[in-house]
Design a protein around this nucleic acid. Sequence first.
DNA 1: GCCGTTTTCGGCCCGACTGTTTTCAGTCG
Length: 567
Amino acid sequence: MNKKIIIRTLEEIALHMELLGENPFKVGAFRKAAGVLEQDPRSLAEMDDILSLKGIGKGTGAVITDLMEKGESDLLAELREEVPDGLIPLLKIPGLGGKKIAKLHQELGIDSAGSLKAACEDGRVSQLPGFGKKTEEKILAELETFGRRPDKLPHWELESVVRLVETALLAIPEAERFLVTGSYRRMAEMSSDLDFIVVTESPERVTEGLMNSLPVLETIGSGDAKLSVTIDAENPVDADFRFVAEEQFASAIHHFTGAKEHNVRLRQLAKERGEKISEYGVEQEDGTVLTFNSEEEFFAHFDLPFFPPAVRKDGREFGRTEELKGLIRPEDIRSDLHMHTVWSDGAESVREMAEACRERGYSHIVITDHSRYLRVANGLTPERLREQIREVREVDAEMDGITVLCGTEMDILPDATLDFDDGLLSELDFVIASIHSNFNQPREKIMERLHAAISNPHVDMIAHPTGRIIGRREGYSPDLEQLIEWAAQYGKILELNANPYRLDMAEEWLELAQKKGVPIAINTDAHSVGQLGYMETGVRYAQRAWLNRDLIVNTWSLERFLGHLKG
DNA sequence: GCCGTTTTCGGCCCGACTGTTTTCAGTCG
């Protein structure tokens, strides 16, 4: 029995109970138990007494024991008898929750999207108490697009919608100040919607301005305190706007940044002190409400340090305040070790990239164009690479204030050989190896390729270790645990590719790499000057994995970096 | 269903909006 099955079973039980109209706290207890198991880093075998875990008691414990002993849960089997499976997807229809679906099932015998549609068309739904004509029409409309819209969209796709909204807000004079919050601000890979906090004294004018300038497909809700709309984009994007007064801004952005469990935990903490947190401030026992000038002040009120949005997760962060001191920050970054120029598929020259990096305050960079195998990217032949080395050395000699190093992003070929020979590699300051081809080879072959690269004494770093594109493709599915082991063994660097499409390697692997003491480089892989700005995204993502700045190669001075390369 | 150096019962974060009501339940985040 593996942990994943137990987690899924507990969640499934919660869903079924929700559909029976069960007490929400009971439903929540099963969800919480699933969450507790998921957050526990240990495997099932390593947990000797699951029942002692906080959040797991008699009821949820019985489910787990059942699963371990019999491979199935009696409780879930019973629930399945009562709740048709076809009801579960209906929970995704906006406006329908457990209680309403339970009623539809009990009163009208609804057991699927199909029978719900028929009941709406016959007008039977609007006859039920608590339901009306509008609800019926809305359900019908939702059923039309049912299942065709993705639940969540990747951060990179939402980015352009955020820019669109920000531009609209900037043009509305009554919108005095605003910030995108929610899981997007926490640097989640995927988010289901966008949440904006807007400071204004005139919510109606801001609403009007937004409705006039944004491509709104649908207004989900609109009031004095909030506006909810669906924005027309490549995929439709739901956006919430919350209108607050200036003094409420800090509390509001904290509240809407979440994550939910982070907020719950903090509210419990406040409650123990006789205070009550809301999105508008902190209510004292005498009923007065304290407000704050910043999130820093807000946290300080509870004797807590500032938690960057990326680490606000399940509440366990409150026990890791010591680690915050060394947490990587954008201002710690002194170099970028992976970027492209016009020599291969980049948009700018060596000098232009170097100048842009100097402006960013970096002390050193490495120019790393593609190698010859990658023809579509105009990869460099050995001859062209030697020419480029001469140019890079020239630029470096001519430029003050930044050191420009020679490197390559060399392909690891499908047959597990490398694109350049050792002689040529030894002329370079920094060698990146990466896979750009034959993603669907069996894992053994992929690992053979990665081993060939990481064990080569001239190779310093493996770039984008999995080749994933968030929300689009899985990559080549390497055995990351093994790769991290090798990196530790051979003393090699692994990359966190900061390109928002990639963010590779992912959070859990960054955590494992840190545990094993493997140095990480956060690199933009920029193909233009503008893309050098991806660094901020990469650093924020690294915060999610609690990376310490000392392990991040590009916070190091040039001397320390070169010293490390020499081994 | 889970939890408790304030509680073994009575809470469980808190508020906005909608639709269906005629004061509020359900849903959502």
